[in-house]
Design a protein around this nucleic acid. Structure first.
Lengths: 221, 221, 221, 221
DNA sequence: TATGAATGAGAGTTCATTCAT
DNA sequence: GATGAATGAACTCTCATTCAT
């Protein structure tokens, strides 16, 4: 199971696992809020402690340093992300509907967690290489879920033989865009509408001339 | 013209405009390199001064504070971005080829400037609201260029009546993905290939069943 | 008797005297080891608790604060010191042999407890004045044992009428030097040899010309 | 020349060598006073800055960290020590008088700098191994001066064939004792008297029976 | 104009001590 | 009696910014 504050790469001084879980959740909740609003560097440990309603020293009983707080903050979101996507595709059998369900789940996670999504982009590079690896691994696991959906569609002959990496990048980018480029969209524009529109665009493309449109690729090379 | 270090929102203590231009370029060049590598907060003014080969004090003759250095650093990239896209579409007349040229230009700017692209995502929120506005305005100008291309295609009946904002978001996201999600792509995969593949995907969509595919939209709501 | 962990200047919260004795010994044993290795300030109460196999809170049941742990740590060594010297001279009757036995005992205590000897020098001043007094008193008691030996020798006409304080300082310095200046001596050089050589030097002096050497004292004043 | 604040093992951010010299002297002077009174660990960087009349940040322009302040503080005393001894023996030709001059110089350095002498004993072990090496090297240089005097005396047949290390240890211990064991001596007792008395003791020994006294060495083993 | 020494507020982190269990 | 989670004051060190030269 992914969604726990236990972690083999972030160590705590406190031994009671339930307490570790509870306190870390408390601290991460405060961190998500503050990091999301103001970014990693402008938020101090004291700010987090105050927001969490505990003393500064206590944070260091559950995290080795500030960077570990960021790490678990980013990981927690990815855990929820993965869980949501997993649940979303569990009940779907039709390949294309499965893919749609996965994409919709991604968009919804982004929507309910816009700040955290932005934070992920802002702060990933604030982690040192070894911590980045943990985040990337989780990111790849999520990606594998999407890739699987795409692969099923391709096997069913529903999607043409495009590079799966490219398709996944496409899907992820569009989901993230809902948070990262929110300035582009009208206030009234809802996630549901966005999911519908963007999935339509992703699947059917932009061109009006159906079927074999005159590709401008030859120009490229 | 955009590509100058003169700026009405960042003021200098030095009066000679040429000098301002030269010094600011020198400083911004150093900042681009360092911010790109290590991010805004971990780079010090001293680092920038050393990289630029000047004294720390001098930076404050041309910028009011560190945040202004970041602002011009981000702006400079957007200026180049805009110039490149402008030049790219200048010679194209066919609407779709124009769009392709614009998109390709975006991808190439991203490719030659991956670090700066990542920096933009990381550091935009480190700016205060008034400075963000300047960046967003420039971003919108670039977006307008793309939007114009799309509009032309739509008027020519080449692109179907999808919301232009959505299409532009799509285009921008994919261009940025080349830098932001570079971990997804193989080392051997070139920008040119990426441009070709992603533009094909963007325009024609993912579906194998051409023309009217059974849309899964109804599931969404 | 000196060698107990009961103490009228360090108070405990626990009433059972045997328990106080046992726990204090346990804690002081851990403290000796850690303070000896790393000094007073770099060792934490937590370190001591862990080394002693107890909880941090328990230390405060037997000591009022960290400084008291140091005090008893220093005192314990002095207690052993005093006991050893007392025992060593108990069986000797010949004044000079008594003195020799006392000096040899000092050197051996130092030798078996080099770290603690160094600690005493390092950390005495970390105590507040009132605690220092306790250490100094014990130190003076030990000194009195030596002084007594010297006095006996003088009365027996074996030692000339030098100021006893000076002689004692001399003896103590040389004994301590075995730990404090161990870098001066070869690895193969044994305590026994050191005792023999240094006592010979102390008693007979450095000069080759026996009897009345041309003293350079007149130069001094 | 030894007595300068330039140092190849402690680096400064400031380049002007005279300034480095002046500021370091200023800081070390404050540190000597405070460390001497209260020890290394209980004195804060802020204390030193205040005592020196500068800002805390400035200390870090001239020292990399607090430990380096301690290092130079200890080194400075050793430099003066070495200079004083060197000067003292420069004019003496008679081997024994040379030795006496060296010893007297040692005692006088200790006397005018009691706190610093105590500090050296207290704080040497607060240095990390590489820094200790620097101190020990200087200490060995000073020791070499003494050893040289002793050797001359031995060659002249004035001192018997005792191990030179032992003799030097003896001399150094007695000199240091003037500061370390000052509690033993009466207030009225002067350095000059101490030098005279202790040198007499060191050279002629304690025994009243001149010449070949019955050595108690055989008892030792 | 240009320098870089100087400032000092504020960051992350530690640790002696307390106290509910 | 014993535990160890919790506290928060105080530490070392950094760095944006200033200003005398």
């Amino acid at each position: 199971m992914t969604g726990t504050m236990q972690s083999d790469f972030v160590t705590a001084q406190v031994e009671n696992p339930e307490l570790v879980d509870r306190r870390r959740s408390q601290i991460v909740a405060a961190a998500v809020k503050l990091f999301g609003d103001r970014g990693y560097y402008t938020v101090t440990i004291k700010d987090i402690a105050k927001e969490a309603g505990i003393s500064t020293g206590l944070i260091y009983q559950y995290f080795q340093n500030k960077e570990d707080v960021l790490l678990l903050t980013l990981m927690e979101r990815l855990d929820r992300y993965k869980d949501d996507v997993t649940k979303a595709i569990a009940s779907e059998v039709d390949p294309l509907q499965r893919l749609h369900a996965a994409y919709a789940a991604c968009c919804r996670v982004v929507d309910t967690n816009k700040e955290a999504t932005v934070l992920a982009y802002r702060s990933f590079r604030s982690l040192d290489p070894s911590r980045r690896k943990h985040v990337l691994n989780r990111e790849r696991e999520i990606n594998a879920l999407l890739a699987d959906c795409v692969r099923h569609c391709q096997r069913a002959g529903l999607i043409r033989g495009i590079d799966i990496n490219l398709v996944c990048s496409h899907l992820a980018s569009m989901a993230h865009a809902w948070a990262l480029q929110s300035w582009r969209f009208d206030r009234g524009y809802s996630v549901d509408q966005y999911i519908a529109d963007s999935f339509d665009l992703l699947t059917k493309g932009m061109l009006a001339i159906d079927c074999v449109p005159s590709s401008p690729q030859t120009v490229t090379t």
